[in-house]
């Protein structure tokens, strides 16, 4: 088929898909905006309950992983298969560390009784319930996207080692990288909205 080698077309398709992902999270951000408007004080209090240190570490981890993905694309374009593989795998490791952090963070919150429909939230301020409801929904959905992104990166790693992604044919790696940057970008918005409100 003639479009097998049309990298631009494949990129267009990926960008369109990323656009739908932004709209998906956009719906949640609309909810956040409206509820922040109605429950400002509860949101600020809720933000103080979250562990900012965890948030900062995770932000840094994701930024590093995004750099690694970008570097791996540059590496493959300079025909350095080994270096590219190293970068992709380190990005995957960063992603896994992020998920482990998230696991401990959620685990801690659940331990102190903050989870959807918990007695603490139901009996407390309604705004607080909404804040943590949004927190679990948004970070949960984001976590799911991390898992999808990791899957794509792992597939890319296999393709690099099997020489199916080369300097002439790097679209899959580039598209996986684009996806990973998007996941990173969404986190850049989630982090201040939940951890840094005042």
């Amino acid at each position: 088929m003639e479009n097998q080698n049309d990298a631009t077309g494949k990129r267009i398709g990926m960008w369109l898909f990323l656009y739908t992902e932004i709209m998906l999270f956009g719906g949640l951000f609309v909810l956040y905006a409206v509820y922040f408007n109605s429950y400002k004080d509860d949101f600020i209090a809720g933000g103080k309950d979250l562990d900012t240190l965890f948030g900062i570490i995770n932000t840094v981890i994701l930024l590093i992983s995004s750099f690694a993905v970008a570097a791996s694309i540059t590496a493959i374009r300079r025909k350095s298969k080994k270096l590219s593989l190293v970068f992709v795998i380190s990005a995957v490791i960063c992603g896994l560390v992020f998920l482990v952090n998230k696991y401990f963070e959620w685990g801690h919150k659940i331990e102190v009784g903050i989870y959807p429909n918990s007695d603490l939230l139901i009996d407390g301020e309604p705004g607080r319930n909404i804040f943590f409801g949004l927190y679990y929904t948004v970070t949960g959905l984001h976590g799911l996207h991390i898992v999808i992104g990791l899957t794509l990166l792992v597939i890319s790693a296999f393709f690099i080692s099997g020489n199916r992604i080369t300097h002439q044919n790097d679209t899959l790696l580039e598209n996986s990288g684009l996806y990973w940057h998007l996941v990173d970008l969404i986190w850049i918005f989630i982090f201040p909205l939940f951890y840094l409100i005042l």
Binding site: L31, N117, R128, G133, Y136
Partner: peptide, 19 residues
């Protein structure tokens, strides 16, 4: 999970769902 996002008794707003 009963997050209560649209449940008025838990602080949610059902009109937002409609939007």
């Amino acid at each position: 999970l009963q997050t209560g996002m649209f449940d008025p008794s838990k602080g949610g707003d059902p009109i937002l769902y409609q939007h």
